[in-house]
Design a protein around this nucleic acid. Sequence first.
DNA 1: GTGTAATTGTGTTATACAACACATTTGCGT
DNA 2: ACGCAAATGTGTTGTATAACACAATTACAC
Lengths: 219, 219
Amino acid sequence: MAEIWSILNGDEKRLIMENFNIQTYKKNQLIYAEGDEPKYLWCLLKGKVKKFKSGVGGRVQILRLIRPVQYFGYRAYFAEEPYVSSAAAFEPSTLGAIPLSIVKELIDKNINLAWFFIRELSHNLGGSDTRIVNLTQKHIRGRLAEALIVLRDNYGYEDDQSTLKIYMAREDLANLSNMTTANAIRTLSTFVNERLIAVDGRRIKLLNEPQLRKISKFG
Amino acid sequence: MAEIWSILNGDEKRLIMENFNIQTYKKNQLIYAEGDEPKYLWCLLKGKVKKFKSGVGGRVQILRLIRPVQYFGYRAYFAEEPYVSSAAAFEPSTLGAIPLSIVKELIDKNINLAWFFIRELSHNLGGSDTRIVNLTQKHIRGRLAEALIVLRDNYGYEDDQSTLKIYMAREDLANLSNMTTANAIRTLSTFVNERLIAVDGRRIKLLNEPQLRKISKFG
DNA sequence: GTGTAATTGTGTTATACAACACATTTGCGT
DNA sequence: ACGCAAATGTGTTGTATAACACAATTACAC
């Protein structure tokens, strides 16, 4: 339960326990969809989750990646509006669901929990604003390099300290970096030729992280 | 003072009054800059303010528009990081500054104030996520139409019920809709030819708002 | 295991938009 | 009122990237 757990007292923990519902999701299974009414605070216990939004002509943009133990699905509830994005499991995942009405009660009684969400929202908003500039201004190479770095920072490496601990489809990689699948594949290939990465199916090894960060930064 | 004021009790109002500092800013004057340490909660009392961020090669993206009475400048403080964007006055403006340390104390004591910021942050985050998709996926016409609608929704019309109540440079319009100044000018001209808008210098009249919304929506 | 669909990969073409270049107009300081 | 800089406006060229088209490979259902 991380972070939040240490904020709560005995009674509060009990209230959560009584209303905590564990669910498993299959690969690519939808957790909630754009337009849905927010009902639960989701806590990712195991697996990986993507938040995404589809735009013009159904084109998908991946907005955020969730890792254990992170919370999501609460923003729309606090904003008193339906979800503006969808969430789906990247791989088989285990999630905990807590009714947002309960969360609301807890926040009312525990200012530290309020601060937790204020911090979380503030952090995400900064990331979102930065992302606007990155996705609109950087060129393809910069955007893909950035995506690889984001994957590294979010999910880390396998034991070899260089293989990304996430195995995603080229299409997802494209949706994360705002480009077509064909261009994601192509650009990935040029990165391989430049010895920046090594690719084996969906296994991606970052061979020159500093240079990737430079490409990501420069654009 | 709007919204926040009604949340506070006598003592809290007194604390604010004692630490409230009114300042005026000239047209285009910077209020704070990317990288600065956040110190004040700003309250726009009069005028118009833009939040923006510069990216690759100094290219500027306008992220948000502020109108009276709105609060800004607090996100970075809550996220415990320096500002990731800058704020500047669009036109001569009057602002109130409250030290964020005071705001923090008030939030600690008044859960309604905490909720105010949770709502505000949640709302902005939803907007930011939506903006990512709009700016990356829509074509120039869609992005400019959207910008015009945003200006309308934010600042409204003059008494004639059609002239936008903001007079901004073509460059700002371009930075708002993620395009070059030349293309903003060009696209504005085609909109004039199509009788969607009328332009007289920086005065922009929306003649066919429903059609503009359609163009904005379709992309 | 075999067939079928999904995913990956690569070349070609089309196009939206940036970049550049320059003329014209407007605003502003003195 | 004058001069200069900034802002506006328009045509031309260049290019990044989408769109399309089609192999080759892989994954998966039955």
